[in-house]
Design a binder for these strands. Structure first.
Length: 467
RNA sequence: GUGGGUGUAGCUCAGCAGGUAGAGCGCCGCGUUGUGGUCGCGGAUGUCGCGGGUUCAAGUCCCGUCACUCACCCCA
């Protein structure tokens, strides 16, 4: 026998967990739609040459390729097989770029889309990190230009969603790559790659601590002077405590600049983003300036975001993204700037479960009709039909058995209500409704069952469902 | 790609200096032929990852191998 098991790096859930996961997807989807974003889906795999436009680097090492048996045999027979024709997407941004370039003339700009699909990365699995996982993205793509106001709208959507998810207080942290780049220029660090390396190191501040980061900064690879390293560390220590405080920090950074235009632009952009964010009604306690946010990805050019849960900083960023100048440069001559954010839902779900913020959900089955006596099965089936026509998700026990067992089945399956039709009920033309969670039951007239169950379902239960 | 760790029941793990395998949880049954989750009693379950070696004897020691896992790189 072959031991049944999932491939490493995949997350598979039991039904009641899956329902909890689906509920989160529903919240995210409705949040995206409420802000006027349109849905798209793209294929799980893309043509390799389309997907891997930038050769080399980390991403290619992590790409899963797709091959039919036919093409596998064909390539095995070749001297130098080369890469397979198809590859699984490793994020949703590259497919979006392709999509926008391909359908450019049928889309209206700014193009606001959301996309919630699985992506694949062939990296070494790690705690809470998966090789197949959901990304829930929103992006706004402009043509030729896109005002920084859009950079404020994206986090406003995220604010709504994380509020609705009800997983405790959170903070959307903002920074701007131009501000950072300009700051580096002032320090004489002008090479783009060098800046990125420094940013990447600075991004580890929370993880490694200021001393370790400082050591690396002045080390051989990055080669900063002591003064430069101190200046960088002082800058990235900036965290705002309120809207006014954030603007104050920005004024100071600008005043201390030795004249970088890029820095001035970055400061101006951040100021506008913060202001629009406030005007959109996002409470100032829920966003902050954090000048250590860098984001590893090199394609970000302006605003960058990370979102953290206030009560669980150890989880790290649960939603991140930023602004990029040119989404689809590899696919089209059109200039398509964009801004977007992504929720890595698989990882988030796993982490929330670890810290006990999400558990299993109640079953999608709202009422179970047990079968006490085969003689009354027709009455049970008729009851189920009535409940279903009343819009109530109903399951009937078709196999029978002891009532105790059927109740245990309901309990384990996370079904809260049981509608019993036995000898007594048939004789009196009634139904007994049992609430397994409240450990309570009552009897109603047969023709009042549907409204009675509706009333029960409408009452929220403050006792959470045990795992 | 680099560096650690671990493989024993469905799950989490214990198993002493080598002497033919254990706990908790879960599962099944009964107590309760119309009442689950609680409680009580009873029960089932193992090629001790795989291959070789040492030994009278290996879950335990040695070698190899495979798998899994944690961290780094990178990132959701």
């Amino acid at each position: 026998m072959i031991r049944p098991r999932t491939a490493p790096g995949t997350l598979e859930l039991l039904p009641t967990e899956q329902i909890a996961f689906q509920r989160m997807l529903d919240v995210i989807r409705s949040g995206y739609e409420r802000f006027g974003f349109l849905p798209i889906e793209t294929p799980a795999y893309e043509l390799t040459d389309v997907l891997l436009t930038k050769t080399g680097g980390e991403t290619e090492r992590q790409v899963y390729f797709v091959q039919s048996t036919g093409s596998l045999e064909k390539s095995a027979a070749q001297e130098e097989p080369g890469l397979p024709e198809l590859a699984l997407r490793f994020d949703l941004t590259v497919p979006l770029a392709r999509y926008v370039a391909e359908h450019e003339h049928q889309l209206t700009f700014p193009f606001r889309r959301y996309q919630m699909q699985r992506v694949y990365r062939g990296e070494r699995p790690q705690k809470g990190r998966y090789r197949e996982f959901y990304q829930c993205d929103i992006d706004i793509i402009g043509k030729d230009g896109l005002s920084p106001r859009h950079d404020a709208e994206c986090p406003a959507v995220i604010h709504t969603i994380f509020t609705d998810l009800d997983i405790g207080p959170f903070t959307i942290q903002l920074n701007n790559r131009k501000l950072m780049r300009g700051f580096f220029e002032d320090l004489g660090i002008t090479d783009g790659e060098h800046q990125v390396s420094v940013l990447r190191e600075v991004d580890k501040l929370d993880k490694r601590g200021a001393d370790a980061v400082r050591e690396t900064l002045v080390g051989e690879a990055l080669g900063l002077t002591e003064q430069a390293a101190d200046a960088v560390l002082a800058l990235v220590a900036v965290r705002s405590t309120s809207h006014a405080d954030a603007l104050g920090h920005l004024d100071r950074v600008l005043a201390e600049s030795t004249g970088s235009e890029v820095l001035a632009t970055g400061v101006a952009e951040l100021r506008e983003v913060l202001t629009v964010l406030r005007d959109l009604g996002v409470p100032e306690s829920d966003y902050a300036l954090n000048l250590s946010i860098a984001r590893g990805l090199d394609y970000y050019t302006g605003t960058v975001y990370e979102t953290t849960l206030d009560d669980h900083p150890e989880i790290g960023s649960v939603c991140s993204g930023g602004r990029y100048d040119d989404l689809a440069g590899q696919y089209t001559k059109s200039k398509l700037p964009g801004v977007g954010l992504s929720i890595g839902l698989t990882r988030l779900f796993w982490q929330l479960r670890e810290v006990g913020l999400v558990g299993t959900a109640e079953s999608t089955v709202q009422v179970l009709v047990p079968q006490l006596d085969e003689a009354y099965l027709p009455q049970c089936l008729a009851l189920a039909t009535d409940l279903r026509q009343g819009g109530i998700n109903t399951e009937v026990v078709l196999d029978g058995g002891k009532l105790g067992k059927q109740l245990r089945y309901a309990d384990r399956a996370g079904i809260r209500f049981v509608a019993i039709v036995g000898e007594q009920e048939v004789a009196a033309d009634t139904v007994t409704i049992k609430d397994l969670r409240r450990q309570d039951q009552f009897t109603v007239a047969r023709d009042e069952v549907v409204p009675a169950v509706r009333v029960e379902l409408a009452q929220p239960l403050d006792v959470p469902h045990e795992d």
